[in-house]
Simulated assay, not measured.
Amino acid sequence: MTNYSTKEIQERVDNYISQFKEGYFSPLSLMARLTEEVGELAREVNHYYGEKPKKPSEQERTVEEELGDIIFVLSCFANSLDIDLSEAFHSSITKIESRDKHRWTRKD
């Protein structure tokens, strides 16, 4: 099992994308790609945990694979806009921990 920090993920994605003249897609194209990947994740979750089984002709994909695709596209999106995902996550979790600290029933 390989463990990557968000910085390492973003660097690896950037190393991959940087070898091509086309570079990163535009933010609008990346948003469309991210939406597509989230839709594919939703489809897999529905197949595995919902009431809609796969057709025999459908390719086997996994939730794990779709989550990996989302991380890749999200990293492309962040890199293209020069956003550090660790910093973005820190801001978000700090806000959530403060805003929602009394929202849910705590475990004993």
Rank of each mutant, 00 (worst) to 15 (best):
P56K: 07
A32L: 13
Y16G: 01
T35K: 05
E97F: 03
S75T: 10
E40C: 05
H90S: 12
Y24A: 03
D100P: 00
K107N: 05
G68E: 07
N46T: 04
L67N: 03
Q19H: 09
S57A: 07
S18L: 09
E51C: 02
E36Y: 05
M1N: 09
Y48W: 05
M31Y: 12
H90K: 10
R33C: 05
L41I: 03
G39K: 01
N79E: 01
K55A: 13
R12I: 08
R43A: 03
D100N: 11
F89A: 12
T94M: 09
E65Q: 09
E44I: 01
E40P: 06
G23R: 08
I9G: 05
I71A: 14
L74Q: 01
E60P: 02
R33V: 08
T35R: 11
T105L: 15
S91M: 14
D14E: 10
H102W: 06
S92P: 01
H90P: 00
Y4A: 15
R61I: 06
H90F: 06
V63A: 03
Y16K: 05
K95L: 11
H47L: 01
Q59R: 13
F77L: 06
E64Y: 14
E11C: 03
P53E: 02
K7L: 07
Y16P: 00
G39L: 05
E64S: 14
L67F: 13
L74A: 15
F77V: 00
F25P: 08
G50R: 00
T6L: 15
V63R: 04
M1F: 08
R12G: 06
C76A: 14
L81Q: 12
I9K: 00
L85I: 15
I17N: 05
P53G: 05
H102P: 00
I9Y: 03
A78I: 04
S86P: 03
G23F: 11
R61G: 07
S18V: 09
I93P: 00
E58P: 02
F25R: 12
G68N: 10
S91G: 14
D69L: 04
L74P: 01
P56M: 07
P27V: 09
R61F: 15
S29A: 15
T2A: 08
T35W: 01
K107T: 10
V45N: 03
I83C: 01
P56Q: 07
E22D: 13
T105N: 12
S75H: 13
E60M: 11
E60W: 10
S5F: 10
E44W: 04
E40L: 14
R61Q: 12
Q59D: 14
M1V: 11
G23Y: 07
E44Q: 05
E60V: 15
S98P: 00
S86D: 14
C76T: 01
E97N: 13
S86Q: 09
G68R: 04
